[in-house]
Structure formats: structure tokens, C-alpha cells
């Protein structure tokens, strides 16, 4: 463990869970790799039927293992990968040290998490599948997406007044 060069660092904004810690930012065509990665991701979402409202109902009704298998094996794969990155001191393709920010506990993870759960069981989609559903031709989900944007905006507007 003494060789662990990857440190967990605090981020300036603990509300941002997907902070971008790259030092030399990708520009122009370099950004295409994220579009391609997202495309592969969207294909998996549809092909494994993760975008299906029915699959989410099965999950919350404990009537199918499918979604638990997907999320569980994704977590295990991610965990092994993060450990390998840390222990082998793997760098980014630009030679930067990989940084994984620490998440800070706050009440929002309980209250907000619960609220998201309520919504997840109604829409049958977390934010990722919303985009894949729209791409798949369920265009009415655009309304759900706009409403999710409104929810995000209202949270931002009242963020400092909510318990956290």
C-alpha cells in the first residue's frame, strides 16, 4: 500500500459528484471520445433493457435478478478497476496522476436519495436511461427530462435553504 500514488482529494464543490480533475483540458476533437463512450453506454442501456420501465418495476418488486445483476457486476468491475489503477499507479493517457475525489457525507444523500428513489420508481429511469429512452424514440420522455431539469434548477435555487 505504500506505493499508492493516487490520493483521494477533496473537491471545491462537494455537490458536484462528477468533477473533472483533468489539468490539461480536452478540446475540440479530443472531446469526441466521450461522445463515443456515451454511445456505447447508450447501446448497452437498450440492449440490456435497462431503459425499460418494466425492468425497474421487476427490480423494486424483487421479481427478477436482472437489474441487481447489472448494477452488482458493474460495481464489482468498477471496484477491481479502481484498485488496479491505485495499486499499479496507472496514469491517464496524458500522463496525469488519476485523482478520485472523496465524497463528503451530508443529509442530502439521505433526503435527496429518498426523493430520487420515489421518482425512479415512477419514471422507470434514472438520468442516464432518460437520454437513451428519448434516443430510442420514446419522445414523450423529453417532457420527463425537462421536468428533471426543472427539479435540478429548483434544487439549485433553494440549495442553501435546505437541510444539509
Amino acid at each position: 500500500m505504500s506505493k499508492v500514488a493516487v490520493k483521494n482529494t477533496g473537491v471545491e464543490d462537494p455537490n458536484c459528484v462528477a468533477p473533472n480533475l483533468q489539468q490539461n483540458h480536452d478540446k475540440g476533437l479530443e472531446l469526441l471520445k466521450y461522445l463515443i463512450l456515451g454511445t456505447l453506454f447508450g447501446i448497452v442501456f437498450v440492449k440490456a433493457e435497462i431503459i425499460s420501465w418494466f425492468r425497474i418495476q421487476e427490480m423494486f418488486r424483487l421479481q427478477s435478478f436482472h437489474m441487481y445483476g447489472v448494477i452488482g457486476s458493474a460495481v464489482v468491475t468498477g471496484m477491481i478497476s479502481v484498485q488496479l489503477i491505485k495499486r499499479l499507479n496507472i496514469k491517464t493517457i496524458h500522463g496525469e496522476t488519476i485523482l478520485i475525489p472523496d465524497k463528503v457525507f451530508k443529509k442530502g444523500q439521505v433526503i435527496g436519495g429518498f426523493i430520487f428513489g420515489l421518482g425512479w420508481a415512477i419514471t422507470g429511469a434514472c438520468p442516464g436511461p432518460l437520454f437513451a429512452q428519448i434516443g430510442s424514440g420514446y419522445t414523450v420522455v423529453l417532457v420527463t427530462l425537462i421536468s428533471a431539469l426543472a427539479g435540478t434548477w429548483v434544487y439549485g435555487k433553494f440549495a442553501d435553504k435546505l437541510p444539509n
Binding site: 426523493i115 421518482g119 434514472c126 417532457v143 431539469l149 426543472a150 427539479g151 435540478t152 434544487y155
Partner: peptide, 16 residues
Amino acid sequence: FVLGGFLVGFGTRYAG
């Protein structure tokens, strides 16, 4: 669409 989407957007951001 409206309520479900709102809860997803509000909740995820509140939860971070």
C-alpha cells in the same frame, strides 16, 4: 412525466 421527472432531477441533485 412531470412529477416523476421533477423528483428525479431534484432528488439526484440534492443527493449529489
